[in-house]
Amino acid sequence: MATVKFKYKGEEKEVDISKIKKVWRVGKMISFTWDEGGGKTGRGAVSEKDAPKELLQMLEKQ
Rank of each mutant, 00 (worst) to 15 (best):
E14K: 03
P52N: 09
K5G: 01
P52A: 09
G10N: 08
G39R: 05
E12G: 04
T33G: 06
K13T: 07
G10P: 00
K5D: 01
K13L: 12
G44F: 14
S18A: 13
E14S: 05
S47Y: 08
G42I: 10
G27K: 08
Q57V: 06
E54S: 09
A45L: 07
W24V: 10
E14M: 05
T33E: 15
P52I: 10
S31V: 10
K21G: 12
K61R: 03
T41W: 13
A51K: 01
K19S: 09
E48M: 07
M1L: 09
E12M: 12
G42T: 12
K21S: 10
E60F: 02
E60H: 04
V15E: 02
A51T: 09
L56D: 04
K22E: 07
E11M: 09
R43M: 03
A51N: 03
G10W: 02
T41L: 15
A51G: 04
D50E: 08
F32L: 07
G27D: 15
G39D: 14
G38M: 07
Y8H: 10
R25K: 10
K7G: 06
E14G: 02
K9N: 11
K22S: 12
A2S: 05
G42K: 07
L59A: 13
K21Q: 14
E36G: 08
D35Q: 04
L59H: 03
E14I: 10
I30T: 02
G42F: 14
L56E: 14
A51Y: 01
I30F: 04
G44Q: 10
K22V: 13
L59I: 05
K61P: 15
D16K: 12
K7C: 15
S47R: 05
L56Q: 12
K9T: 01
F6C: 04
V15M: 08
A2I: 12
E11P: 01
T3W: 02
P52W: 01
W34N: 01
G10F: 02
F6H: 01
I30W: 02
V23W: 02
D35C: 10
D16Y: 05
V26A: 11
L56N: 08
W24D: 12
V26C: 15
K21L: 09
D16F: 10
E12H: 06
S18C: 11
L56H: 13
D35T: 07
K53C: 14
A45M: 07
E12L: 09
K21R: 11
I17R: 03
K49W: 09
Q57I: 05
E12T: 10
M29S: 15
G37W: 09
G44K: 03
E60L: 03
K9E: 13
M1N: 14
G37E: 12
F32N: 00
S18F: 12
L56F: 06
D16S: 09
K7N: 12
G44V: 12
P52H: 06
S31D: 15
W34K: 00
Q57T: 11
L56M: 14
V46T: 08
K40G: 11
K22R: 12
G27L: 04
K49E: 06
A45S: 14
A45G: 11
E48Q: 05
K40L: 08
L56T: 10
G44L: 07
S47I: 12
V15W: 00
W34D: 00
K61S: 14
G27F: 01
V46S: 04
A2V: 13
K40F: 14
G42N: 13
K19Y: 15
S31P: 03
P52F: 03
E54G: 09
L59T: 02
P52Y: 02
G42E: 15
V15A: 04
G38W: 11
P52G: 10
L59E: 07
G39I: 12
V23T: 05
L55D: 00
E36L: 04
K7D: 14
K53H: 04
R43G: 11
S47Q: 11
